[in-house]
Write a protein that binds this DNA or RNA. Structure first.
Lengths: 157, 157
DNA sequence: AGATAAAATGATATAACATAACAGTCAACG
DNA sequence: CGTTGACTGTTATGTTATATCATTTTATCT
């Protein structure tokens, strides 16, 4: 299966991602409005994560929009698990993998080119859950993000 | 007496933490100035992470201070590995363990009481590094944070 | 001690990220 | 066709972080 394997440089099939989202929303009786579609399309088309204000600027080229409107669209897309928030960048990125993955993926964020690679990592989390269980801690959400140089950037001059 | 509340039971001795920091800075020829000492002391005394503006407010009770001054102290303390940044809270917390730990710890952040437990997790990272190496990615820094309810809060009504 | 260079802090302004509150609009459904 | 609830618009403000330049403090050398 060679679905949109995004990584450094490679373009994402934005249209495919958006129509997948459309089907998913339809199936779950969620409203995939023009604004939500537009925001997701911008994220899917971008090789790197975008901030809410980045998104507002891009949408604004077509239609006047306030940041809060973008934030609302982002909130919806996050809830629908169609996008991820990259906390170390205060930015957002379209979800590369099929939705409904329970395990929070690891994100490899390149400090040079800014791209993000999404690495599913179930085993990784299984190991950790022992430690967490020992502490009696009940996890609700996780943030695992790694900064560094991606292979492409490291090879480059 | 002057043991500060830190609700996971592992209370921190603020004074001990500060004097440890003092020794460490002296050994490394770093300047442990009054402002840096004060900021670290506030963090060490707090059961939960504090934002830069929280810190500014607390320091301000004694002496007028601008946020940027606090940010500079935080930057120094982060570089010296005396504190951690909790990105999912935009806040900072004193480092519980001996300094010089290379492996980034996992932080268990309680959504109810707000406390943070710092869990060193070397094994955890060893597993992950294979995946990362396969991607040709050269990690520089990592963020592993987990939100949930701590044991105390979960037991409480 | 005085000169001086580097580091730290003060002061002000502004950038960047995010939410509150309320009014208006649109779509679904009885 | 009118009510309801979800979505969006608008304005304002809150929160987190950095830029810039002036001033003070500290370390070091002579």
């Amino acid at each position: 299966m060679n679905i949109e394997r995004r990584s450094t440089g490679s373009r994402r099939a934005s249209a495919a991602l958006v129509s997948r989202a459309e089907r998913l929303c339809h199936d779950q009786n969620l409203r995939f409005t023009p604004m939500r579609r537009r925001v997701l399309a911008e994220l899917a088309a971008s090789p790197e994560p975008l901030t809410a204000y980045d998104l507002a600027d891009r949408v604004r080229e077509e239609k006047r929009v306030a940041p809060v409107t973008v934030y609302r669209a982002l909130e919806f897309l996050l809830d629908a698990k169609l996008i991820h928030r990259i906390v170390i960048r205060n930015a957002y990125t379209a979800c590369d993998h099929a939705p409904h993955h329970d395990a929070t993926p690891v994100f490899l964020v390149c400090t040079r080119c800014g791209t993000v690679e999404e690495v599913p990592s179930e085993a990784f989390q299984r190991d950790l859950s022992e430690t967490i269980a020992e502490a009696g801690f009940r996890p609700k959400s996780r943030v695992f993000e790694i900064e560094g140089e991606c292979a492409k950037c490291h090879a480059a001059p």
